[in-house]
Nucleic acid binder design. Structure first.
Lengths: 112, 112
DNA sequence: ATAGTTGCTACTAAATTCGTAGCAACTATA
DNA sequence: TATAGTTGCTACGAATTTAGTAGCAACTAT
């Protein structure tokens, strides 16, 4: 499977529209969590794995490659870290935390 | 598999932290695109399917159920539509469009 | 040397998704 | 009241993805 990237057809969409590439990338299991985990500081491969509930190393490796090709992460001496672009994505996604809190409230009102 | 929901352990995370439940839900293939497709107007099952590049009806059905239990979508006479909560999520995610545009620019600069 | 850590590959099993077929209920249209 | 078309959805086998575990080469500290 090819790496989701703007201006290219992506998994599940032939449009190549940028936002769809984003959905494609973020809609793949673990990618959001990986980026989220790297938010505050660089992490080693194994630390990243631990942060993601012990996800398979093979899958993690694949994700890292994709995220790196998408220019959202990079490998440095400190381990893996967000690029400026990746960091800006996390900033963009930051309001999600607040939303999640609202969602939590709405859902704990007789959701069970 | 259980429905990701705040205050409950979710797929790939035992923490039960709300944001993780969000990542869990949105990090599942199609969910973002489904919500995105419903952004502007309610859609019928089949229209939704077309909007998502002809995704399998069985998977779509499963997604609808999850999103509905998560109170993000609802079924009405007009078809499927976003709840107020779902709409607020889309609003929260709206800045992503701008980010995607930036990403596109950054990536078309020698990404190939 | 020896043991521990780190980054990663390999491989099998389990879970998820795809793709297609098809059916019951409803809606025209004739 | 036949007939055809649409809609929502289920079934099921095939393909793809993810999980889980083992393990190895390189590096570090002892």
């Amino acid at each position: 499977m090819s790496i989701p990237r703007p201006k290219q057809p992506v998994r599940g969409s032939k449009s190549g529209v940028a936002i769809m590439a984003v959905f494609d990338l973020l809609g793949q299991k673990w990618n959001m969590k990986i980026l989220w985990a790297l938010r505050s500081s660089p992490l080693s491969f194994r630390a990243l794995q631990d942060n993601c509930d012990g996800m398979s190393p093979s899958v993690l490796n694949g994700r890292i490659k994709k995220l790196t090709q998408a220019k959202l992460t990079a490998k440095t001496a400190d381990g893996y870290e967000l690029t400026a672009l990746g960091a800006s994505l996390m900033t963009t996604l930051d309001p999600l935390r607040q939303w999640a809190a609202q969602w939590e409230v709405a859902c704990t009102d007789r959701c069970d």
